[in-house]
Structure formats: structure tokens, C-alpha cells
């Protein structure tokens, strides 16, 4: 009996949370776009995009290098080192670029967004906006949401590009795969629409989900130091799980049937 009551209660709480999250999204996005929001969005792109660049570039380079190294040791046994290029490029473009970028973004920018909005709530800045007849969903949430959705795919593209260059450094310059075949076999195997665009679409979906979770967790947080730290952790955990789960679904939809 008690067990059912608990199940029912948590189901209701979950649904109420989803409702509040949807309300936040509608309030932030369906609102007529305002010109005043553009500078705010640019500012947030600086915070979530530019400030994440370094970690994205460094991680991209290392992952590309490791991929090339690992793939080479397998491929060389079959005399198929020429396939190093497509191996590195396809892994990055289809999977690692969007997914690792989203995970890094959740840890680097998502958690910061949650903490920032939670603190704004705790210090009554959000209430204060309300009292100034300014809708915090439009002024605080919307620019952050847009900035995240725009920035993350750009970061993922940069990540993949840097990773492919990193793969060339290890594969071509270090392990001695022919430079011409690294690029030309890659070019033959990689399709712009199929591989690059699908990767970008994946990244867009991740960007939307991760940023949504981050701003909602902040906006819905209990405005105490404990509540904010909890919300921040939840952002990282929930968005990572959401990214990995969605990645499977999207991969099955995009590349699953051939």
C-alpha cells in the first residue's frame, strides 16, 4: 500500500516537474522575439560558447589523436591503413563530436548556467525582475537557451575538425600513413549530408536538451546553497543521461537502416 502511494506520489511529482519545464520553455521561446534580447544572447554566447572553446579544442585534438593511434594498430594488421582517414573522420563526425561536446558542455557550461540562475533566484534577482514588470523567462532564460542552442553545434563542428587534424598529426606525421590516402579515402567515404549534417542535427538536439535541463534546473531550484548545489549536480547527471540515451535513438534513426 505504502509502496503504491510512493509510486503515485513520485509519478505526480515527475509530471508536475515536466509541466513546469514545458511552461518555462513556452514562456521563454514562444514569446515574441525582442530586439533587446539580441545583445543579451550575444553576451551569453560569449559565456557558454567562447569560454568553452579551449576545453573543446584541447579535447578534440586529443580524442582525434587517440582515435588515430587505436585505429592504426587494428588496421595495420589487415594492411588497411588507408582506411584510417574515414575511421577517424566518421567516428568524430557521427558520434564523438556531438556526444563528447555535449557532455563537456553539460559539465562546463550547463552546470554554470544552473548555478547562475539558482543564485539569481536565491538573491531575489528573479523576483526583482518580476516586480519591475520584466518577465524573467524572456530576459534571463530565453537568451541563455538560444545561446546554448546556437553555440553547441558550432563547438561540435570545431571539435570534429580539430579531431580530424589531430588524427592526421598522429596518423600521417607520426605513424607514416600516406597523406594523400588519408585525405582522399576520407573524402570518398564521408558524405556531407549523410555524415556531417546528421552530426550537426544530433548536436542541435543535444544542445536544446542540455540547455533546457540546465536553465530549468536553475529556475526550479530550491533557493538555498544546498538546493543550488543539488540542482547543479542534477544538471550534469540528467543531461549526460539524456545525451547518451538520445544518441542511441538518433543513431538508430539516422544511420541504423541501410
Amino acid at each position: 500500500m505504502e509502496w503504491f502511494a510512493r509510486l503515485g506520489r513520485s509519478t505526480l511529482q515527475g509530471l508536475a516537474g515536466l509541466g513546469r519545464a514545458a511552461y518555462l520553455l513556452v514562456g521563454a521561446l514562444v514569446a515574441r522575439p525582442q530586439l533587446k534580447n539580441i545583445p543579451l544572447t550575444i553576451r551569453q554566447m560569449y559565456v557558454v560558447g567562447v569560454q568553452s572553446l579551449l576545453i573543446i579544442i584541447v579535447s578534440g585534438a586529443f580524442i582525434g589523436m587517440v582515435l588515430a593511434l587505436q585505429a592504426y594498430t587494428v588496421l595495420v594488421d589487415y594492411g588497411a591503413e588507408e582506411s584510417l582517414g574515414p575511421m577517424v573522420a566518421l567516428s568524430l563526425l557521427r558520434e564523438l563530436g556531438p556526444v563528447v561536446t555535449a557532455l563537456l558542455f553539460a559539465g562546463r557550461a550547463g552546470s554554470a548556467l544552473t548555478a547562475e540562475i539558482g543564485l539569481m533566484k536565491a538573491t531575489e534577482q528573479l523576483s526583482s525582475l518580476e516586480m519591475m514588470a520584466v518577465d524573467p523567462l524572456r530576459r534571463i532564460i530565453a537568451p541563455r537557451l538560444w545561446a546554448g542552442v546556437i553555440s553547441m553545434p558550432m563547438l561540435a563542428i570545431i571539435f570534429s575538425a580539430v579531431g580530424i587534424l589531430g588524427g592526421q598529426v598522429v596518423g600521417v606525421d607520426w605513424l607514416g600513413v600516406d597523406s594523400g590516402s588519408y585525405w582522399s579515402v576520407m573524402q570518398a567515404a564521408v558524405e556531407f549530408d549523410e555524415d556531417i549534417m546528421n552530426g550537426v542535427i544530433k548536436s542541435l538536439v543535444f544542445a536544446f536538451v542540455v540547455t533546457w535541463i540546465a536553465v530549468f534546473r536553475g529556475y526550479d531550484s530550491v533557493p538555498t546553497s544546498e538546493g543550488i548545489s543539488q540542482a547543479t549536480t542534477q544538471t550534469v547527471v540528467y543531461s549526460s543521461l539524456a545525451v547518451l540515451g538520445l544518441d542511441f535513438v538518433l543513431t538508430a534513426l539516422m544511420f541504423g537502416t541501410h
Binding site: 554566447m45 560558447g49 553555440s151 558550432m154 563547438l155 575538425a161 576520407m186 564521408v190 556531417i196
Partner: peptide
């Protein structure tokens, strides 16, 4: 940042695909 992303996309389009 936007220029860098555009450059990366162009590189992917021309050099990779």
C-alpha cells in the same frame, strides 16, 4: 567564435567530404 566555426564547417565540407 562564429568565424572559427564557419571555417571548421568549410574545412569539413571541402577537405573531409
Amino acid at each position: 567564435f562564429v568565424a572559427l566555426a564557419a571555417a571548421a564547417l568549410i574545412m569539413l565540407a571541402l577537405k573531409v567530404a
